[in-house]
Amino acid sequence: MTPLTSITAVAVPLLLDNIDTDTIIPSREIRSTGKTGLAAGLFAGWRYQAPGGREPAPAFVLNQPRYARARILLAGGNFGCGSSREHAVWALGEHGIRVVIAPSFAPIFFGNCVRNGMLPAVLPAAAVHDLAQVIDADPQANPLTVDVRAQTVTLPTGRSWHFPLESEPKLMLLGGLDAIDLTLQMQQRIDAFLERDRLERPWIYLGTER
């Protein structure tokens, strides 16, 4: 996974609450059993004029030249609710997004972001609105700088906001770490747990009862 320490990029606002993962990538756009080939399906229901079509809907923000090369998404509350599909994060990532800033995230989506080197940054709704307003005046002239180590989002004017980030996701993002590798380093602890738990709760260990 590519580490994420800091990024300065154009941000695109999509400030609706409760944007669900089927809106981020409709199920019908998930056509293979892999993690790639998903960018074209990103926000397909809003981005294109007709379902399944590829004729851009000019009004949709991602189609507007003023937001070209956006790598940061500003969103409303409870972003990524609905289906657990990680394809939502893969599609955003393939499109180039590395950071989503929102007042809150659906729990599964939050975890999926971190697992894929994407930062879910929580800022109060008022801050997200302020950011969107400044950006909207001239997106290309107002790129945001997001610093994972300092946990800050900063405008070119120097105005800055601090976002919370617990140490586990922070370490994963900064180091581009693979969670499975990290956990396998604790194999002895896992084995010790299983050895004890097999005696205490034998009914959990199917196929070993007799």
């Binding site: 993690k35 617990e166 586990e168 990290l182 956990t183």
Partner: peptide
């Protein structure tokens, strides 16, 4: 609880999950 695909891989491989 519901998880993503990467976490499913983690749970399958290690029998555990890193959970906040």
């Amino acid at each position: 609880w519901g998880i993503g695909s990467s976490e499913a891989e983690h749970a399958l491989a290690t029998g555990t999950l890193r959970v906040r």
